[in-house]
Computed example of a mutant assay.
Amino acid sequence: MSSLNTNIAAMTALQTLAQTNKEMLVTQNRVSTGLKVRDASDNAAYWSIATTMRSDRAAVSTVEDALGLGAATIEVAVTAMNSAIETVTKIKAKLVAARAPGLDRGKIQSELAELQAELRNTAGSAVFSGENWLQVDSTGPTLKTIVASFSRDSTGNITIGTIEVDIGATGTMLFDIGGTNPASATGILDTVTDYVLASGTKSYSVAGVGTGIDISEITDDPTDLLALEAMVDAVDAALDRMTDAATLLGAAKSRISLQKDFVNKLMDSIDIGIGQLVDADMNEESTRLQALQVRQQLGVQALGIANQSAQQILRLFQG
């Protein structure tokens, strides 16, 4: 039946065209943004998961920055520690040379004084971002932590992992700047030791300010020579402790390097996971867009044909 009041064909064509335009708008948005889930209205569950993952990814990126800062701090400490070890090795060699009888130990002492000053300069300049792990205040915190990981468990609880480095007397501290009494210093190089000389008992440290090892008073007296040998033993013991400290720093540096590699891979994995949830398949969307464009054109033509039915009814009344 043909009706002037109700054009069923046109109504059907219009509804189909409107649906096609709606689908085309969705596809065009996906093509232009590259996302199939842009907000919660597209897919609430996927959008919620992706939003949380993006937030966690930003936190992991901050962890990467913290690891970089920690690695730089340790690198400075390692460089200074290795330099200090070389200097202490030279001090040990000078002391061994001073054991030979008849030498002018005053001249050797002048060389030792320069080496001891170099030790203090080395430790004092081992600073990065305001942190010095070789010249330490023993009255303050002596355990440094580096943020190393960020994780969220299945219940949503967050855990922040750290790498700890001991910069105290049992760790990397070469000089103790926490006290006013040099005799109570606990650093590897400024710990004071008593030596019995022929002229009396003297207190020295490997490189402490004002109390550094002094061989200018050493004579060929057997008591003095025994004290000199004890000084060599003290320097050798300091070298052993410095080697342990360098090993501690090296282990921390290696762990940070491994953790940085893991964090980089973790961020890539998170990006891939987010993409699986919200990214549009551009091959699929481009194919769909072409199909919708054809459907749109056909819909327009169908609507035009349907609108011509009224003109056909008018011809029936023309003579």
Score class of each variant (00 low, 15 high):
residue 6 T to M: 15
residue 13 A to D: 08
residue 19 Q to L: 07
residue 19 Q to R: 04
residue 20 T to Q: 02
residue 27 T to Y: 02
residue 28 Q to V: 03
residue 28 Q to H: 02
residue 35 L to A: 07
residue 48 S to N: 15
residue 51 T to L: 10
residue 56 D to K: 08
residue 65 D to P: 05
residue 67 L to Q: 05
residue 69 L to R: 10
residue 70 G to R: 01
residue 71 A to R: 06
residue 79 T to M: 02
residue 80 A to W: 00
residue 84 A to L: 05
residue 92 K to T: 09
residue 104 D to M: 02
residue 106 G to N: 13
residue 115 L to W: 03
residue 120 R to C: 10
residue 122 T to N: 02
residue 129 S to N: 14
residue 129 S to A: 15
residue 131 E to R: 07
residue 132 N to H: 06
residue 140 G to K: 03
residue 146 I to W: 00
residue 153 D to T: 08
residue 164 E to G: 06
residue 166 D to N: 09
residue 173 M to C: 10
residue 174 L to S: 01
residue 181 N to G: 09
residue 181 N to V: 08
residue 181 N to M: 08
residue 182 P to F: 01
residue 182 P to T: 07
residue 185 A to P: 03
residue 190 D to M: 00
residue 195 Y to P: 01
residue 197 L to I: 00
residue 203 S to K: 12
residue 206 V to S: 06
residue 207 A to V: 06
residue 209 V to E: 14
residue 214 D to Q: 13
residue 217 E to H: 02
residue 220 D to L: 11
residue 222 P to S: 07
residue 225 L to A: 07
residue 226 L to N: 13
residue 226 L to M: 12
residue 229 E to V: 03
residue 236 D to E: 15
residue 244 D to Y: 00
residue 246 A to V: 04
residue 253 K to D: 11
residue 271 D to R: 15
residue 277 L to C: 04
residue 283 N to G: 07
residue 286 S to T: 09
residue 288 R to I: 08
residue 294 V to Y: 05
residue 299 G to M: 01
residue 299 G to E: 00
residue 301 Q to C: 10
residue 309 S to Q: 06
residue 314 L to G: 10
residue 319 G to E: 10
